[in-house]
Design a protein around this nucleic acid. Sequence first.
DNA 1: AGAAACGTTGCCGCTACGTCAAGGTCAAGC
DNA 2: GCTTGACCTTGACGTAGCGGCAACGTTTCT
Lengths: 264, 264
Amino acid sequence: MRIGEIAAAVGLTTRAIRHYHHLGLLPEPARRPNGYREYGLREAIMLARVKRLTELGLGLEEVRDVLADDEGRELAEVLGELDDDLAQQEADIRARRARLAELLRMSREGLLPGDGPVSPGLAELFGRFRPAGSAAAAKDLEHLALFDATADPVQRDRIYLALRRLADDPELATKMGELYARMDDLAHASVDDPRVEALGTDLAAVVPDDLLAVLAHEGRGDSAPSKTAFGDAFLDDFAPAQAAAVRQMLKVLSARTGWAGWTP
Amino acid sequence: MRIGEIAAAVGLTTRAIRHYHHLGLLPEPARRPNGYREYGLREAIMLARVKRLTELGLGLEEVRDVLADDEGRELAEVLGELDDDLAQQEADIRARRARLAELLRMSREGLLPGDGPVSPGLAELFGRFRPAGSAAAAKDLEHLALFDATADPVQRDRIYLALRRLADDPELATKMGELYARMDDLAHASVDDPRVEALGTDLAAVVPDDLLAVLAHEGRGDSAPSKTAFGDAFLDDFAPAQAAAVRQMLKVLSARTGWAGWTP
DNA sequence: AGAAACGTTGCCGCTACGTCAAGGTCAAGC
DNA sequence: GCTTGACCTTGACGTAGCGGCAACGTTTCT
């Protein structure tokens, strides 16, 4: 048989067969005078073996080992490892599919935020805490999404708990709306603007203590793998006057809670 | 932030971030005078987005589309396709794991033939039809394994049914053992040896009719995707005198069944 | 004799980066 | 000033399992 015939017979491509030759998985057969490879039933049997093994998911290296290591002993071992590997993959896929299902559900309900998938906890928060046309509020959500992806789970849940309490209080929620609006007003203001200090102080009155504690933890984190250096970058993300207001808020919070760890 | 800092903060490698720049997934940030990339919170937010999407299993191209195609509309669609894809993968893995479990069980019970995994039907046959130290029998099993991997399922099951009947009849099984032994004796014999014709005739008396029908079907197959050209190669796999015996068997079978399709 | 359908070798491309290699930059300690 | 070490830069190669193409020879059919 020529290579095309055996390929069709066994159900492989000629390219694959030559590839196997190249890898030493299957010895090169004899050649006809014109240079064509000449295959017999032996080669077909070998190829069928290779095919069965690769279809199980073995890599070509492993197939080579199994075929070389004379007669099977190694095979059970390789199959065992393969099964472990596949079990792992299956678990991964299932986890991703679970997340996907959740996201698709949110998407159908119109709850999917514009900046894509987030953790379940944050998604729930987003559900009741939508940006009300405020640029500052939108930015806040982005910061939260970042925090969600980088902070360690303990701190994350701590913040979420605090924020849920905030969101669940209609009075506080209304107040937050006003504060966001005032923050928006500072977008092009000077840092000397008297509204800056006032807003900072008012913010500190609403923001939960946990926020500062978590930020302080983040800034110096020795326990977590996060140890982020977002501190300065965080303030740089605001317009100057807005940043000044945030700094003022932090100052008041520091004085109130006794945390001195975070004073950029 | 420098690239290493943002990488650690977001939980990526510097290499990955540069890769994203290269692919245009994320624009190159401003540079410091020394050439270092300078990152801010905006970039961190984008990277966290990218990370969430890739962790879901999206390809980088798709991530780019989702991020570019302004604001989310496309996202649900992509997620849907992804889920379909993952469902397919999961099904594949499960199927392979099922086969693996079966093979591992056979391996534990010592039923795994030396030439590796075969289809369930053939495995069962192998269980009661072991090579009894005969080279011809061993070769026969190899041929069966090849047949198993290449023939179409209908013909396969037809043969297996016939062989099971043969294997289940103790008298016939004993006879087959003798025939294999006689085949072995012909390994170095001349094609003129009188035992050749005798063996061929005796073989034809035992081998089921279906065998020839299936072989004939294979040789000219217009219906199946198989259409194998094993015919000649099959005979070439035997020693000359053995091949002559097989040919004799086929001749008798042809005469008996009326099939003329397979006369090499 | 020309076209169609084979065969040959060889090299590039695909994913999502990891891993050198060969340097330039910066802060700290001697 | 010099070294050390931890950063950063670009660039290029390697990964698994082939697919696809190029550039060319062989066989076979018409």
